[in-house]
Simulated assay, not measured.
Amino acid sequence: MKAYVIGVQISEGVAKATGKPYSIGKLHAALPMAGEGARGMMGSEYQCEPAVLRKLDNVNLPAYCDLEMQD
């Protein structure tokens, strides 16, 4: 799927309540709208492993990309 990757967000640390480490990644994208009467782009947010998002460290955002989704 083609989309504009408009941002990435990585949150890592140690939870105050449990003392356990956490690592959360989010990819923010703008997708073309589809359907009758629709035009423009819509924003979406996807959970993603931080290791995958770090591969985008040297990419200037926003960038038009092919995205591959997996469950």
Rank of each mutant, 00 (worst) to 15 (best):
D57C: 03
M42V: 12
L31P: 05
R39T: 11
L53Q: 12
E36P: 02
M33F: 00
E45C: 12
G25W: 02
R39D: 10
H28G: 10
Q47D: 15
G25P: 01
D57W: 09
G35C: 03
V52S: 05
A17T: 00
N58L: 12
D57I: 02
E36K: 06
P21A: 09
L56V: 01
S44M: 12
P21N: 07
A51Q: 04
G35F: 06
E45D: 13
Y22D: 09
G37S: 06
L56P: 00
P21K: 10
G35Y: 02
N58R: 09
D57V: 07
N58W: 10
Y22F: 12
Y22N: 04
K55T: 13
K55R: 15
R39K: 11
P32L: 02
M33K: 15
M41N: 14
Y22W: 08
A34P: 00
G35Q: 06
Q47F: 15
A30D: 07
A34Y: 15
V52Q: 11
L31K: 11
Y46L: 10
Y22M: 00
M33P: 10
M33Y: 09
D57F: 08
D57N: 07
G25M: 07
S44K: 12
A38G: 08
P32M: 11
H28V: 02
L27H: 04
G40A: 00
V52D: 06
V52M: 09
G25S: 11
R39W: 15
G37I: 03
P21Q: 02
Y22A: 00
E45N: 13
R54P: 01
A29I: 10
T18L: 00
V52C: 08
G37D: 06
G19H: 03
S23L: 13
E36A: 05
S23F: 04
L56I: 05
A51E: 03
V52R: 11
Y46R: 07
S44N: 11
M33V: 12
K26E: 11
V59S: 09
S44W: 04
K26I: 15
A30V: 06
A34E: 14
E36I: 07
A38K: 12
M42Q: 15
E36G: 02
E49Q: 14
S44D: 05
V59W: 05
G40L: 04
G40H: 01
K26L: 15
G19T: 01
L56Y: 10
H28I: 00
A38D: 04
L27R: 03
L31I: 14
S23T: 11
M41E: 15
A34N: 12
